[in-house]
Design a protein around this nucleic acid. Structure first.
Lengths: 126, 126
DNA sequence: AACGACGTTTACGTTAACGTAAAGTTAATC
DNA sequence: GATTAACTTTACGTTAACGTAAACGTCGTT
């Protein structure tokens, strides 16, 4: 079976964004769907890129940051210097992500407190 | 001993933002420092609010979202209906935070892979 | 009394990430 | 063949979150 392909509105529906958003990502060079005549046709790889970009957005990354992170996967970096440099940026990213994770855990703990207070408040009025 | 108080540039330095940012937050109604003549004087409570706002920013929350979350703590909600409503918004927040946390963990796993690939690549060239 | 460091207000400028509207093309259907 | 639905391009508009510049006040020091 041939690899599946997606139209722009299929992907828009799947990810809960507008077609404008997807075209905008292309305009910014984040994806490069092929064309069938005039129409855009998206490969599974395109689809994954969009998914990863949106994942980045959810935790507050800019589109550029998301793309930089995604592009760490494909190895256009052969020499020692580049590999070392990539390892450093990986570690920077990791540090940031760990702090974000800590931020989230702190907020979750805060929400637990708030909810406990609410439930206490409700008991009295039961 | 009296409770400590902060000038705008002290806080700016501490949090790594500009004074413009802090004044902007006030302009948007996020904080309300008292005045000494013309000058702003920040209380520890003001300081914590700024800290929480910046924490929210780090994980991609808007200023408004941060404030809404912070304001869940002070109980201006006495009646049953309000408490129930608050519990629901708490649960929505929790769901979003959990997904963000999952996103981060996925990215961290991805970074581990990238780093492993880098180190493999380096071995051959040692 | 001039200077520098800090504070203030007012106001226009900037960037990212799209929204929205206009106007047209292509393919399938009534 | 007219309509409808999905696609296209072009282009101006919008919002959030500040940046930046101008013009001024108030100390403490030199």
């Amino acid at each position: 079976m041939a690899t599946p392909t997606y139209t722009i509105s299929e992907l828009a529906r799947e990810f809960g964004v507008t077609t404008r958003t997807i075209r905008f990502y292309e305009e910014k060079g984040l994806i490069h769907p092929r064309r069938e005549g005039q129409k855009r046709l998206y490969s599974p790889a395109d689809r994954v890129r969009i998914k990863l970009i949106l994942r980045g957005k959810r935790i507050g990354m800019s589109l550029q940051e998301s793309v930089e992170l995604i592009d760490m996967y494909d190895p256009e970096h052969n020499n020692r210097e580049q590999l070392h440099s990539l390892i450093r940026t990986v570690q920077d990213r990791r540090a940031r992500l760990l702090r974000q994770k800590q931020d989230i855990e702190d907020m979750l703990a805060g929400l637990d407190e708030v909810q406990a207070l609410c439930e206490r408040g409700l008991e009295g009025k039961q």
